[in-house]
Design a protein around this nucleic acid. Sequence first.
DNA 1: CTGAAAGCGCTTACAG
DNA 2: CTGAAAGCGCTTACAG
Lengths: 335, 335
Amino acid sequence: MIRLQDIAEMAGVSRTTVSNVINGNTKRVSQETIDKITAILKEQNYVPHMGSVMLSGHGSRIIGVVLGFHYAHGMQSLQDPFVGELVGTIQMETEEKGYYVMLIGGENIQNVVDIASKWNVEGLIILGYNEEQYRRLSRKLNKKMIMIDTYPEGAYTFPNVGVDDYSGGYQIGEYLYSRGYEKALFVAETDKDTDYYRWMGFKQAMEKRGKFCSRSRYIVVPGEKHLRLRKYGELLPRFLEARALAFSSDYDAIEAMNFFFDKGIRIPDQISITGYDDSIYASMVRPKLTTVHQDVRQKAHVALKCLMKLIQGERLEELNIKSPVYLVKRDSVRE
Amino acid sequence: MIRLQDIAEMAGVSRTTVSNVINGNTKRVSQETIDKITAILKEQNYVPHMGSVMLSGHGSRIIGVVLGFHYAHGMQSLQDPFVGELVGTIQMETEEKGYYVMLIGGENIQNVVDIASKWNVEGLIILGYNEEQYRRLSRKLNKKMIMIDTYPEGAYTFPNVGVDDYSGGYQIGEYLYSRGYEKALFVAETDKDTDYYRWMGFKQAMEKRGKFCSRSRYIVVPGEKHLRLRKYGELLPRFLEARALAFSSDYDAIEAMNFFFDKGIRIPDQISITGYDDSIYASMVRPKLTTVHQDVRQKAHVALKCLMKLIQGERLEELNIKSPVYLVKRDSVRE
DNA sequence: CTGAAAGCGCTTACAG
DNA sequence: CTGAAAGCGCTTACAG
């Protein structure tokens, strides 16, 4: 590989001068020299050795992308097209900025600490961590970090780019209400974080005209598929009476649609269904799923922009940045 | 951050000695010293600075994962759950081996060359490149590389981990034949590489009992969704007459199922459909899609194992490693 | 405007 | 069994 030294020799100048033009400390170098060196640099296709760069003051320009375990639905986190698109977009934009992305397994927090230290990573974008994991990590590692979709118990104490869960839930609730589904049920696998905020929005919308939406309409189902399906079986009469089900994820919504299909129950004639996320499969199932869309690329963009701000030493105006969300009406709700 | 130097001082030895125990050059160090240093290392949670390590002879231990453009179906490459699972598995296994994964955008070949050189990457796993792109890259970059699913015009001149396309096509063909679909059509977006091998397997199976399977049964449809659907419209009579369609991808199969559904044509009663890949959505659509499954994790595992061999200076026994494949019978073919 | 020199944190032949 | 020293390829105060 060709070194700074070599370039310097070709140009008949010192390494200092070459380094200066590479790093744009160009005010104290003659235009002539700049041009000569630039030409040689281009011609030789010189690339600096990052080991040296790291060692001599400059940052690594590495952004660590931490893949938290998120074995939801028995999948690896990157198997989720959502996570994939997010990571893919981060990769593209990171490279455009002259940075690099290193993938880091987040399951073991010490592993994250070690890798981030070893490589002197400049910042971290963290997927699939909960608040406690964030705390444990930040106690051991002093790096700029942006969380994605992490929900705190109380107020935000860390920068987070999330979906506007409340608003999405509200939009779903309002829509179902307007179609006469005043008794719609909300179904999720947990009763906190994302799910809870979506429920809160849903509930709020249902109560808009002065009615009361009781907590009993928030159905929490098991995380394990087998048990979940059994639960659907038990709840079937109640579901049919409610006539509309707002699921907190597309995955569960589609699974439930299949459950009903297998039972010979027609959607949306006998029961209306909504999802959340607008995964690419929401429009591939039949009937097409009415759901809430979020702009994943926008989210990746915002996350990276915030991280860059932190890296540049700026402060964020707001800790919790919400990525906007809108309802996509398709065919799984009877009009 | 804590340095080798600091550890040496704590232990009252030289940096050399500490370095020796870290790197396992332990034969020339007394057990006592080893123990003392090891304890301090652990206690201080020392991690070496990779910049220095890279600079002083050792490799970077970075594996570059190149994301070739594969804007199939208008998606980013990582948006494909397949690619996601592959990359996710590579990440996990790479870390287990004490290596690191850097994501590299492959669209611009010079970009791959630059990043791989800058970081002195030890090896590359390359997704979504065709043979020509491989050639252009390898001409400029002398690194160990493993391709994934790349098909050469003639013989393999590069190490590749692929699916056993031929076998999958054969299994599909044989199955359809055995169910009486002797005139089934094969549908793909291209007439080469993956698609072509699958067709060859399909054709072979159809011809097993001495019949002839004409090339005209290989239907090539447009890559653009809009045009593809129009084409399906035109071909509808022929499709209905053939009574079975073997698609070269789950995506297209599912899309076609929806097309038929929207036209009121019943699957599998009026027409049987098969896919290829067994993406996680193959079993989420109704009827569940009969398709060919490949073990993605196994594939990632094999790819990494081969790359490690190359890095260790060994040779590969075979250039084209095929990941095995089997038929998954579900509900989209009438029994 | 340009360059000699120190320094970043490691490893590794080599001497003892 | 242990350590002093050179060297990896860069950057950056500093001197001229």
